[in-house]
Design a protein around this nucleic acid. Sequence first.
DNA 1: ATCATACCCGACTATTTATTCGGGTCAATA
DNA 2: TATTGACCCGAATAAATAGTCGGGTATGAT
Lengths: 211, 211
Amino acid sequence: MEKLITARQKQLLGVIYDFIKSSGYPPTFAEMRENLGVSSNQSVADLLEKLRQLKIVKKETGARTLAILPLGYKLLNLPPLVLILGVTTAGMPAEAIEISGEWRPVSQEVSRLIEEVFMLKVSGDSMINAGIDDGDAVLVQTKKEFVSGEIVYAQIGDEGTIKRFMSDDKPPYVYLKPENPKYQLIPFTHEMELKGKIISILKNNYWQPIK
Amino acid sequence: MEKLITARQKQLLGVIYDFIKSSGYPPTFAEMRENLGVSSNQSVADLLEKLRQLKIVKKETGARTLAILPLGYKLLNLPPLVLILGVTTAGMPAEAIEISGEWRPVSQEVSRLIEEVFMLKVSGDSMINAGIDDGDAVLVQTKKEFVSGEIVYAQIGDEGTIKRFMSDDKPPYVYLKPENPKYQLIPFTHEMELKGKIISILKNNYWQPIK
DNA sequence: ATCATACCCGACTATTTATTCGGGTCAATA
DNA sequence: TATTGACCCGAATAAATAGTCGGGTATGAT
């Protein structure tokens, strides 16, 4: 196992990481100096230059123009691929939901990535035949184009709903289909907006602490 | 519906957001000026001051000491509460996993939040009685202290495993219990490290595109 | 032994960037 | 119509910050 990075370099990486984490923006040379316990800018510059060459961080000219690159996060032992889940309180999805006390807000400056995927609590039994039960939560990946047969999250006016999206060659051509014979299918209208596709289901019983 | 924020203020907020998103660090006054199409710092300062008063952004003295606060993200129509899932390739969890082409890496400067929760693919049938099947994925929330009965992700040497954590008043006192009668329980040893608690299960059939 | 490399010092200079000053316009409102 | 608030100008000053110079000390490899 060969050493890609020296201990000191890694330490600097950690300092940068910690700083960003707590303040929301990158550190200056002076701030790095202090957290590293050195007194010269050059010391920081030397280390930083190595990190830059190794594509662990990027640095542009100017104040605080520093960012950690994927390789850097990897070295910090944080997985490079992530999925963001938003737990919405308002806005896009229709109703506020709360996911037990276990899940909590994370630092603000990051919540911006939540475009990708968000989470919704399901109420009702209209999709039980697709394995989605009342009280489950679903992950919705936002997208624009949909394929017939996908389970989607749609908004109809102010209300959000989860149904199977279908398009046919016979009337009503395009519609939402509940997965429960008790319910009628819903023809597509212009008040209807498809927000995303359900990519996962989180079963109700697992959100709660398991006794 | 009363207006909390003016159009121009919101525009600045958007400019800041976009800048951070693409560069990884906050903009300077000059950069905001340009993206806003004004020529005076004061113009930016005025708007920024409002955003600051309204607790939409925070601003410290110094270069690029700017960050968006939760309220700001809310105004940008991004959910304020988020959960981060890491999909690991190596390191903490035992094996690389890939979640269909649908899920993709997000900007690097953010992956640092993944300490919270990560995702693992499950192989094997040792937990079928707890509803966790081969091919499912689970969400693991990292923590240090565990309660008897929780389903946990544990590492034994290099290998990761999912089991129910149990502690008793009779031997073997502390152990991991498979939820499948085919398998034996595993007494706790010092090579064993509990990484986190399973908080959700993503059923295999929902990762794949639904036909 | 000499060389390269990782690391460090202190001080100086150059540059970037923020901050402040003293105004002005326009539209809504009292 | 006088006032206020939102927005804007250009220019000067003040501050923060980066970048650079010319070194030094170890340590391990050639």
